[in-house]
Design a protein around this nucleic acid. Structure first.
Lengths: 331, 331
DNA sequence: CAATGCAATGTAAACGTTTTCATTTAGAAA
DNA sequence: TTTCTAAATGAAAACGTTTACATTGCATTG
């Protein structure tokens, strides 16, 4: 691949001048600019992002990190898509790190990202108290959190009002006449699990529906946990008549288990999920769900990150988007 | 961040020696190795992948590119997941490029990847005749193609037997008694679309079922095209009694349209999709589908790529995995 | 015409590694 | 002790940029 000095030689100038026309800074005579542009075209020269990144902390290396807990989860895929959209528009490349809710993997990925000299990071940290990530924020790496915040740390975060979303879901169930409403929670180290549980409890409380502790189950946020915990609930002597599932993987798992047992939804048991998918209406039955604007979360996060890269001392913002209940046929 | 010279200074040696212990090459006395290791630990030193990549074409920079057409498509997400798994295991980071079946975006992404100095690339090219990608292969970049090959080019590729998969699907429909079988194809610039159509035709031919040209529709592989083209088919004076959908997005779209019209599956119309998802059994009705081992495709591709990086002149392989028909309730 | 100042360009260092080649060191053999 | 050899280490260049600083050229001014 041609390098800057090749261009310089061919245009009969020094690399400094070439650099100047590439970055549009410094004065350069129009005639030599043309010469250089011509050489660039002829040699199909492309600047090396690697060299650029190595050399200059001051200028952006156009590389972002994305750290997500589970790419199997359609929610994060949609977030990722949103991020990618704005990253690409701003000429940033993306290093994708899928840590699968594995602490060690997360640590290693963070090290890699640091070592890659990324300009900024969008992360859904393993938990609120992620020391390593906090440290990176402290050290000045531009970071924005999605879906999950970072305790006691001044960092941009964009997420959804989990309490309110869950509240709406459960309120909807109550108003529809259900009384034994179960909650299958994701990992309780994840803030959103707790917040959703809070919404669940608040709704029950508001309508004076007793909260039977046996009806809230906690798993690891994965598909299998939905199957397992839904099964446990259905095996109860006094099983629930409705189910609030803590995320989409859990919902899908629960759905699978309910179908396996030949139960009818919503006659035998109703279900409302947290997280909507574009194909939720094709499920059996069409799923009532709390919709997070995942794509928008990703886009907003991307925009905030790029803003912060360009203005590192901008005051941090917490952007809370609205979750919306989509009523379909499962309740 | 501490650099190698910091370590060297603290250990009282030169950077060359530090480099030697880091890469385990060259002789270094045990006592100084220990000294250096100690300094590394104390300074929390981490080598810069950027510098490493810049300096040395000979040693791997531990960076891979992934170029996929559509991250909305669960198939590619699963492939991506497989790739990520083996990449991580081998200490490679991943630059994810989602080109959305947009030629210009693909071109730009390829340029970025080149400029990032990736060690290798896994790609599902926009079409068989992707000149830019071909050129990169020719120039020696290790590449493995997934899902789609590259014409007249000596490159590793891992994919599924599309003809056979489609054949099985359509044969299954025929044996179940359906006769007016429609095919909704994806983009016809994509080899797999054509191959699946071939399987479709071969099955019809084998059983002497006439092939009504009005029953094959071609779209852009996206969700919306499934809705649209399924609608057109259903509006036909003599509509199909069964549908073979060219990929999962199309399937989901078709499903949506069928439900919107209040038609019953499979009574009014049967449907079999190409691509299975782990939640296909939760669809309404549980979907009969041709399952591609997407995760395995990704893992294999990752392994092949790393092999090739380590042995660039290894002869190229074409790995064809089996697609399997999963019978559920939609047929 | 000399002095001045600014526009245009060049030189060289720096970023953090790897790697070649040269040099020092240590231990063995004589 | 001297000499030799292999082992251990170091010096410096190179990768492809950006950038601070130096230099050149040229027009303007007095």
């Amino acid at each position: 691949m041609a390098s800057m000095s090749d261009v310089a030689r061919r245009a009969g100038v020094s690399i400094a001048t070439v650099s100047r026309v590439l970055n549009n800074n410094g004065k350069v005579r129009e005639s030599t600019r043309i010469l250089i542009l011509k050489a660039i075209k002829e040699l199909k020269y492309q600047p090396s992002r690697v060299a650029k990144r190595l050399r200059s902390k001051s200028v952006s290396g156009n590389l972002l990190g994305v750290l997500i807990p589970d790419i199997k989860n359609p929610f994060y895929v949609e977030v990722l898509e949103g991020i990618e959209e704005v990253a690409y528009r701003n000429n940033y490349a993306l290093i994708m790190c899928n840590f699968g809710q594995d602490d060690q993997k997360e640590r290693l990925y963070l090290e890699i990202l640091q070592s890659e000299g990324i300009d900024g990071l969008i992360a859904a940290p393993a938990h609120e108290n992620d020391l390593q990530l906090k440290k990176m924020v402290k050290e000045g790496l531009p970071v924005v959190c999605v879906d999950r915040g970072l305790k006691d740390t001044d960092v941009d975060v964009v997420l959804v009002d989990n309490v309110r979303g869950a509240f709406q879901a459960v309120e909807h169930l109550i108003l529809a006449g259900y009384r034994r409403i179960a909650y299958i929670s994701g990992l309780s180290t994840i803030p959103s699990s707790l917040l959703r549980e809070r919404g669940y409890r608040e709704a029950l409380a508001k309508y004076g529906v007793p909260c039977d502790p046996v009806l809230v189950r906690r798993g690891d946020s994965k598909h299998q946990s939905g199957i397992q915990l839904c099964g446990e609930l259905l095996d109860l002597p006094d099983p629930p008549d409705a189910l609030f599932a803590g995320n989409n993987l859990i919902t899908l798992g629960a759905l699978e288990e309910i179908h396996r047992r030949g139960l009818k939804i919503p006659k035998d048991i109703a279900i409302v999920g947290f997280d909507d998918m574009y194909w939720s209406s094709s499920l059996n039955p069409p799923l009532t769900a709390v919709r997070q604007p995942a794509g928008e979360i990703g886009r907003r996060a991307g925009e905030l990150l790029i803003q912060r890269i360009n203005d590192p001392k901008r005051t941090s913002v917490q952007m809370m988007l609205n979750a919306e209940l989509i009523r379909r046929k499962s309740t």
